[in-house]
């Protein structure tokens, strides 16, 4: 019985290691991902000053949110909101696209949470990020 169990484990391990090797890299160079990335890249110039001022923060679920727009003139707040909404639409599409490009649509949530921690990790000092206890400044 022990022997059977062992061989099952062994086989499992073999499959697992094979899968790990096969998935050494995630495909992120499809035209769809490139298009979304390009769109986010050009939007970053608009968002960067808002990250720095604290008007916009990085949320714990890999999105962005208006945190405190009081420093932004009233007339620019609609545009700010639009930018944030567009950024979030792109981010959602990006996570979905990476999952489907790699043949695993069910990975979307995990990809999103991976991104969430990486965005926050790479955020510049002074930017606001959302943790378990709320907003904090890096």
């Amino acid at each position: 019985m022990k022997k059977i169990l062992f061989s099952v484990l062994l086989l499992g391990a073999m499959f697992a290691s094979q899968m790990v090797v096969a998935a050494a890299d995630l495909e992120v160079n499809t035209p769809a991902i490139t298009a979304i990335k390009g769109s986010m890249q050009s939007r970053h110039a608009q968002l960067a000053p808002h990250y720095a001022s604290g008007a916009v923060g990085l949320t714990k679920d890999g999105m962005v949110a208006v945190r405190d727009a009081n420093a932004v003139p009233l007339k620019d707040r609609a545009a700010l909101n639009g930018t944030v909404a567009a950024e979030n639409a792109d981010r959602a599409k990006l996570y979905k696209e990476i999952a489907t490009a790699n043949g695993h649509p069910e990975w979307q949530a995990e990809i999103q949470s991976t991104f969430a921690s990486r965005w926050i990790d790479k955020a510049q000092g002074g930017w606001w990020v959302q943790g378990a206890g709320g907003w904090t400044q890096k």
């Binding site: 995630l26 992120v28 991902i33 990335k37 990006l94 990476i98 990975w107 995990e110 991104f115 990486r118």
Partner: peptide, 8 residues
């Protein structure tokens, strides 16, 4: 996934 996220 982390590697891919970092790249993007």
């Amino acid at each position: 996934a982390e590697k891919a996220a970092d790249k993007i």
